[in-house]
Design a binder for these strands. Sequence first.
DNA 1: CCTGCTAACTTGACAGTGACAAGATTGGAG
DNA 2: CTCCAATCTTGTCACTGTCAAGTTAGCAGG
Lengths: 190, 190
Amino acid sequence: MTRPYHHGDLRRTLLAAAAEAITESGPAALSLRDLARRAGVSHAAPAHHFGDKAGLLTALAAEGFTFLADELDRTRAAGGGVLDAGVAYVRFAVAHRAHFAVMFQPELLNGSDPELRSAQDRASDALRDAVASVQESELRGAGARIAGLSAWSIVHGFATLWLGGALPDVLGDDPEEAARQVIRPLFARD
Amino acid sequence: MTRPYHHGDLRRTLLAAAAEAITESGPAALSLRDLARRAGVSHAAPAHHFGDKAGLLTALAAEGFTFLADELDRTRAAGGGVLDAGVAYVRFAVAHRAHFAVMFQPELLNGSDPELRSAQDRASDALRDAVASVQESELRGAGARIAGLSAWSIVHGFATLWLGGALPDVLGDDPEEAARQVIRPLFARD
DNA sequence: CCTGCTAACTTGACAGTGACAAGATTGGAG
DNA sequence: CTCCAATCTTGTCACTGTCAAGTTAGCAGG
């Protein structure tokens, strides 16, 4: 008995396999043929669903932006403040490092893809909302818009450095706790 | 008349070509054979100097860390403060985006390479020195160590997002000025 | 001058990859 | 029951990274 001709859920399977493979060895080492093997299908099957390697990564990135938006909305619904949103950003990056690794590398993606665009917009809105609640006093007089970008930058930078293993051991091994420490100086009111 | 058998400066030429190619289309699209063609040598010539594709990227990364350390030392020598060091970090990232794109992607590199290690150490020291001058009052009571990581995070995140084209147009098109605005909230004493 | 040695480069080959074209199979709408 | 469109396969091509073996050139010592 062999596998059925129609896999049934190949698209999702491939995305999951891609995330796993990227988590293991980065986006550069990703091979469509290897994904096909892992999924037990022929080497050209992925192309049918994603057209292209860039298409696959674009789909992954879109999924990532959706996950991120979900995570941010969730913390916001739980009454979290800006600091919590920042920690949520880091939590997302660590939990879905494969997605995160692809989301901000435009040259790997199909920038014009409508799914990607709308997922990006959702995440963008969620980010904006997360920062909107911040008090002017917490921002040391900077405009709320600029302060939002400051928050985004510090959180994004922390996540990137953490995932790259660039940060010193002083921070411990819990990314969320470490993030809280590093982000706090931006918002702490003295 | 053909090219001489010995190129004379192939290593440097290849590194420059690699930087150019990566700037154009990212590290993933880099091809050793293409570099060889650009340099007018045979397809296997690069391997002799770098052993490996990872070897080439490692050499690029090491060069990048050296450039970064130079840039930071220079601002420090000019009497710049933490904010200036941050801007210098961004200036480096924009001026050498190919190097920057490779420096923090461990899976592309040969992490044990001694040249890379020592260049990383130099940059690390330069970063530490840049933050060392900061006053405790500017840090809102956070330990100097943590505050240094905050500064690194915000600057690294800004550079990454800027290069990825993820930041809104509100910031204008001068990266250094934009960086100054975004970094300031972390250090401004009100 | 020439002998030999080593670093720099070339040539040739191999397996693996992404992409494309053309064919096979299937589930499901009508 | 028929047919059609979506799904997947097979075969092929140019290209890539890497390795092994050969070639050339610079250079030190006689």
